[in-house]
Amino acid sequence: MPTVTIDEKPYRADVGETILEVAQRNGIWIPTLCHHQALEPYAACRICVVEIDRGGWWQVVTSCNYPIRRALTVRVNSERAIRARRGVMELLLARCPESPQLRRLANRMGVEGTPYPHIAAAQENCILCNLCVRVCSERIGASAISMVGRGGDRTVATPFRMSSEDCIGCGACAAVCPVGTIDLIFHEDEVEISPFETRVTLRRCAECGRPVGSELVNEVLASRGGPTLVEMLAGDAYCLRCKRKKLAERLTAAVPGNGSGRAAQERSLPGGTNVQTGLHAGNPRSIRVGEAG
């Protein structure tokens, strides 16, 4: 088990772990933007750089993907490392001056503003961290969006910038976006993923009518044979709030001596049947549950 020395304190680490993982486990804060624990490191934003001892000279490396193979000495808060991280942040602030999330992180890093003008022309409030693209392909498996173009013209977009046939409207891209650039816009019966102009049929809570996600998500998850969306996301045809309310009702009903509980109890018996009646009635696109029923 190699020892990683961070800012002069020793820590135990496993071979193959990254510097960032060791730091995070031990409560040492290193800013990140393009990093997400559910995804492979990408090391594009460069905000997480630290210094490592290369025997006689210090190299600036990205902590999110530098693998620990043997004992290593790291400086997270050296003057050079801090200057490097702040320099990167200044460049990002010049690109995305509007993002409150980015400004919050900048504040935490002690960066007040940027000396650089705002000159980026393409996709102004995107830092091109690629998280949305990676979550869409690595985790969701839809690969609806990708990086388009190169250099300063790079943007995130759907093929030919047209509504994507591969998008399932799950909203994972919006969820992982660190600067709040991707939005879900709810229309009457569609959900729109905002910068990508993709619209997918919307599911609404059977009880209160609040949006609970897209129809396609349900279908895709079901077709994969794993836990269905029913189990994972929506639970019932209800939104989280209604679900909680129902659960409360059920628990109340389960208390002996309460006569009103019986109907509710029947309805929530384990198995697929309840779902079929509640959720999928009149939904021709559901696959797995339909077959099971």
Partner: peptide, 12 residues
């Protein structure tokens, strides 16, 4: 191969 990946290559 995802269409998006091909488009990405075509524009890169």
């Amino acid at each position: 191969v995802p269409f998006s990946r091909i488009y990405s290559i075509a524009t890169f």
